[in-house]
Design a protein around this nucleic acid. Sequence first.
DNA 1: TTTTTGGTTTCCAAAAAAAAGAACTAAAAA
DNA 2: TTTTTAGTTCTTTTTTTTGGAAACCAAAAA
Lengths: 162, 162
Amino acid sequence: MTDMQANKDERLTQKVEEMGVFFERLGRAPMSGRVLAYLLLSEPPHQDFFEIQAFLKASKSAVSNALNYLMQEGTIDYITFSGDRRRYFRINPTGWLNNLKNGLRQVTILRHLLEGVLHERTHSAYPAFDEELKKIVAFNVFIAEGIERNIAEWERQHGEGT
Amino acid sequence: MTDMQANKDERLTQKVEEMGVFFERLGRAPMSGRVLAYLLLSEPPHQDFFEIQAFLKASKSAVSNALNYLMQEGTIDYITFSGDRRRYFRINPTGWLNNLKNGLRQVTILRHLLEGVLHERTHSAYPAFDEELKKIVAFNVFIAEGIERNIAEWERQHGEGT
DNA sequence: TTTTTGGTTTCCAAAAAAAAGAACTAAAAA
DNA sequence: TTTTTAGTTCTTTTTTTTGGAAACCAAAAA
């Protein structure tokens, strides 16, 4: 490996760690976060098991689990090439997008949860609190509706499956 | 305690556990999730340390840590009453709302992250992948802008601090 | 048919997160 | 001034998560 390649690699490692942490904080295990980051940044954008393992300096089981987690989640899938039995894992943009949509819909779930709370509290002896709560519920309703509207609008413009 | 009260209590416990799990999945420790749920549902909506501890059947340290975590996060605060030295913890709707806004802004962070990825990839030998990626970035841009716009619109209608 | 490859699975250890228990502390009450 | 109260903090225990090592396995290659 040339010096230039080593530098590029080091920079990539750095970026993968950084982005990995971001994906981790979105709820995944560290290794899953790193695999996802790697597949976003690697060239080519599809990589086989061994390459991922080597790049991340991790065990086979860790890589296997991370890949399977991301596949079940829908964020990645794999392609194959005839005459080569390896699977080449890559980001599945469609699956990831669905995933993102579901994440955004948590806001709607929270909205309904909070509306439920407000409903429970209707005869509370502390209407002042309920009024304050109403504001936060109203914000949630406003944002959740905005998100749902935007998702619907996106789907109208781009078709359901995209 | 009457039978009726016991039933009510049991139902509340149940709801607190359920909602607690939801808040947990948003990234908090189980105990923090439960405290938050309890303060949303309890009557009165402000409760002292001992009451929270007793209701959740948890240790003082667990409750103390959960309360401090939620306070530093801004989700709760406390009120006091003259002649009573206890602190009565309660939801801080304004703080929670800011918290929610920050959470929503993660979408904008992801947007910028992905735009960075696309920028890195501009001279990739796999433009087909880049095209697919562009769709997902476009979705993120669309949604992130929508969210930012909606937050701004909300603030315009309700004033910054709310 | 044996070997190699591309993983998976099982079992285990390290580490991190969560919560319990108990000692401690500052302020208030007695 | 001593005691209580309302928590906090420190230490320990328990539980959960994460990942490594190595055995395993099915399909392909030799």
